[in-house]
Each structure stands twice: as structure tokens, then as C-alpha cells.
Amino acid sequence: ADHLSALADAVLHLVMQEAWKATPSRHRDEPKVAVIGYGKLGGKELGYASDLDLVFLFEDDAPEAASVYARFVRRVISWLTVQTSSGKLYSVDTRLRPEGQDGLLVCSFEHFKRYQESTGGAWIWEHQALTRARFCAGDRQLGLAFERERTKILCRPRDIRSVQTAVVSMRRKILENRKNASGLFDLKRDRGGMLDVEFVIQTLVLTQACRYPELTHNLGNSALLDMSA
């Protein structure tokens, strides 16, 4: 999984380089865009059939930046997902971006920060997802800024009971919407499966990182469980 995740990072880096060269009206030599991996890519648990959960951020004051980067990101996604005679590189899911499907495909870093930090912005489940997020490719300085912001958000003091209630509610929705009719135990989604382990760890991070910031390190479920023992 580590090697497959590293391969995906390298592919993203290469595709971004070539896609930028092919982007019309580009206004700088290198794009000020960072690709943030969530889910299995973010947690370095990528499998052969895994899709890429991606969020695209930019930090650029040029007036044309937003429109240029929107074209650029659409090109990147197209190149990653196009079906060829040899198959396609990856499936891509961008629904974890701020405002989900209603949000911009690529958003400014300032907007991302406001959304994550504001009371009426990100939901608890979005902060759960942030526990497994990491910078994967693109502008390194922006990637480092994202990592600092991620740590700041995860280390924010939270009411433990409120977090537990929100996490349990989300888990129930998943169970209701993805019922297992096979009669066999689903190791990932059934009660007591891997998803429950992930939710326990994410709850631990969101409620205890304010006291133990080392929990924000994206080390994987096993390492975080060992640290918490």
C-alpha cells in the first residue's frame, strides 16, 4: 500500500507537470497548486483498485488565477481518468472539497482555511476525513502550509460528547445506506469491521489531539492505536 501510494504521488506530479504545459493562457512557469490526498491515498493505504480522493488548492493573487487553475485541474483529472486501450490511470473523486459537489473544483487556500475554521463551515465528518489527509503533489510551500493548517484544525479543543454524537450518527447513516444483504461478514463495513476501527481512531484524534498533538501525524491506524494504548 505504501508503494502504491508513492506511485500515485509520482504519477500526480508528472501529470501536473505535463498538464500545465498544455494549459492555455498560463500566467506563470509553475502552477501554485497543491494536491491534497484524502482517504486511502491520504492514509497511504492505496490498493490496486482504489480511486483517488483529491482536493485541489491554490494560492495565487493573479486576477486570472482562479479561471486558469480551473482549466488546469480539469485537464489533470481528464488525463488521470481517460479510458485508453490499456485502461485508465485512476478513478478520481473530488467530493471532499469545501462545499462538496456544490463547491469549486479548485479553491483558494484562504477559502479552505475559512471553511475549515468557521462554525458554520466544515462538518465533523469533514474533520474526520482531514485526519487522513496529506499533501501529495504540486507546490511544496503550499503543501507545507496545508500541513500546518491541518494540524491547527485537528488540535482545536472540541466537546467530546458532541464529537461522539456526530460520529455515531454518521456511522448509523452508513449502515442504513449500505446494508449488507450477502449474509456474509463484510470486513470493512459491518459492525466491528475496519470502518468502526477507523471511526474510533478519528474520534480519538479529534478529541485528544489538543492534548497530544502527536496524534495528528499521519502514521496509519495501527501506529495510532499503538500510540494510544
Rank of each mutant, 00 (worst) to 15 (best):
R161K: 14
R178T: 14
K173V: 09
K173T: 15
V168F: 06
K152Y: 10
P157T: 09
A137K: 04
S169M: 09
L144V: 11
R150C: 04
G138F: 05
I153W: 03
I153H: 02
E149V: 06
R140N: 02
R158N: 08
G143T: 14
M170F: 12
T151F: 00
R150H: 07
S162Q: 15
E176T: 07
R134G: 04
E147H: 02
D139T: 05
V167K: 08
E147D: 03
F146L: 01
R156F: 09
L144F: 03
A145W: 05
L142M: 02
A166V: 13
D139E: 11
R134L: 06
Q164M: 13
N180G: 04
I160Q: 12
K152M: 01
K152G: 00
E176A: 09
G143M: 03
K173P: 00
V167P: 04
N177T: 13
G138I: 11
L175H: 13
L144E: 15
E149K: 03
S162M: 12
F135P: 05
R148D: 10
C155W: 10
L154I: 11
G138K: 01
T151G: 00
C136E: 09
T151Q: 12
L142Y: 14
F135W: 15
T151K: 13
D139N: 12
A145C: 01
K179V: 15
E149S: 02
A145P: 01
K173N: 09
R156L: 14
L175S: 09
R158F: 12
L154P: 04
C136N: 05
V163F: 09
R161V: 15
F135M: 02
S169E: 14
K179C: 04
R134A: 04
E147Q: 09
I174P: 00
F135T: 08
R156Y: 10
L154A: 01
F146V: 10
Q164Y: 11
R150I: 14
R156K: 14
R172P: 00
R156M: 10
Q164E: 15
T165A: 08
Q141K: 04
C136K: 11
R134K: 07
S169V: 08
R148K: 10
E149A: 05
I153T: 14
P157I: 10
E147F: 05
R140A: 07
E176M: 08
R158A: 04
I153A: 01
K173R: 13
L175V: 06
R172L: 07
C136V: 15
K173G: 04
C136L: 01
V168H: 10
R158W: 15
R178W: 10
N177H: 09
K152N: 06
I174H: 02
A137W: 07
I160R: 15
R172W: 06
C136P: 02
R158C: 07
R148L: 04
A137M: 06
V163W: 12
A137H: 08
Q164P: 01
L175Y: 07
A133L: 07
D139C: 02
C136T: 14
R178E: 13
D159M: 04
D139A: 02
I153L: 04
